[in-house]
C-alpha cells in the first residue's frame, strides 16, 4: 500500500471539503471541521505530554539517576487541581493553580516582558535617530520617533484630547491608521500565500496521482 498517495488523497479530500464552505455550509465541511477540531485537541494533548510534562515534570520528579524529588509533586498536584475544575464540589481547588499561573505571569510581565515590549522598543526608537544613512533615512527615523510619541499620546486618556494634546493625538491616529492598514495588507497576503500553497498542492501533488499533469 502506497501510504504517500493515501496521504495526498486524505489531505486533498479534506482540503476540498473545507473549501466547499465557500459555496455554502454543507455536510462535507461540517465533517472536516469536526475532524480538525478533534484531531487538533488530541495533537496538543500529546504534544503537551511529550514536550512539556515528560521533560519538565516527570524527569524532574523521577530523575534518571534514581530516587524521587517530592518537591516536584507540588506542580503535579496544582495541575491536577486545575483539571478538578470540572468536578463542582472540588472546583474551588483550581483557584490555587490559577493563582500560581497569574502570580508568575504577572511577575514575568512586570520585569521581562516590560523590558522587551517597552524599554527595548523605546531604546530602538531613540537610537534610530543617531543612525546615519542620508537625509531620507533621517526623515524616516523622525517619522518613527514622532509616530511612537504621538501614538502614545493618543493612548493617554488621563488628559482630555484638546489643544496641543488633541493635535498630537490626531497625528497619532494617522500613524495608527497607516500601521493598521499595513498590518491588514500583510495579513491578507499571508492568507493568500497559504491559498496559493494549497492550490499548488491540489494541482501539482494531487492531480498527478490521477494521471492529470498540468
Amino acid at each position: 500500500m502506497n501510504w504517500t498517495v493515501i496521504g495526498i488523497w486524505l489531505g486533498a479530500l479534506l482540503s476540498l471539503s473545507l473549501y466547499s464552505f465557500l459555496y455554502k455550509d454543507n455536510p462535507f465541511y461540517k465533517f472536516a471541521e469536526h475532524l480538525f477540531v478533534g484531531m487538533s485537541a488530541g495533537y496538543w494533548v500529546i504534544y503537551t505530554i511529550m514536550n512539556v510534562l515528560i521533560p519538565n515534570w516527570w524527569n524532574n520528579l523521577v530523575p534518571a539517576e534514581g530516587g524521587m524529588q517530592p518537591i516536584w509533586l507540588i506542580p503535579g498536584f496544582l495541575g491536577l487541581f486545575m483539571v478538578l475544575r470540572v468536578v463542582p464540589k472540588l472546583s474551588g481547588l483550581s483557584r490555587m493553580s490559577l493563582a500560581l499561573i497569574v502570580g508568575t505571569g504577572a511577575g514575568l510581565s512586570m520585569t521581562a516582558m516590560f523590558q522587551t515590549n517597552a524599554l527595548a522598543q523605546v531604546n530602538g526608537t531613540i537610537i534610530s535617530l543617531g543612525q546615519g544613512g542620508g537625509w531620507f533615512n533621517w526623515v524616516s527615523n523622525i517619522i518613527v520617533v514622532a509616530g511612537v510619541v504621538c501614538g502614545l499620546v493618543y493612548f493617554f486618556f488621563s488628559k482630555a484630547h484638546t489643544g496641543i494634546v488633541g493635535k498630537t493625538a490626531n497625528v497619532g491616529i494617522t500613524i495608527l491608521m497607516v500601521a493598521f492598514g499595513a498590518s491588514f495588507g500583510y495579513t491578507v497576503m499571508a492568507r493568500i500565500s497559504l491559498l496559493i500553497g494549497q492550490t499548488q498542492f491540489l494541482l501539482f501533488d494531487w492531480l498527478p496521482t490521477m494521471g492529470i499533469h498540468l
Binding site: 526608537t125 517619522i143 500601521a179
Partner: peptide, 9 residues
C-alpha cells in the same frame, strides 16, 4: 517606518 511606529506605540 510608519507601520513600525504604530506597532511600537
Amino acid at each position: 517606518y510608519p507601520n513600525m511606529a504604530g506597532q511600537r506605540a
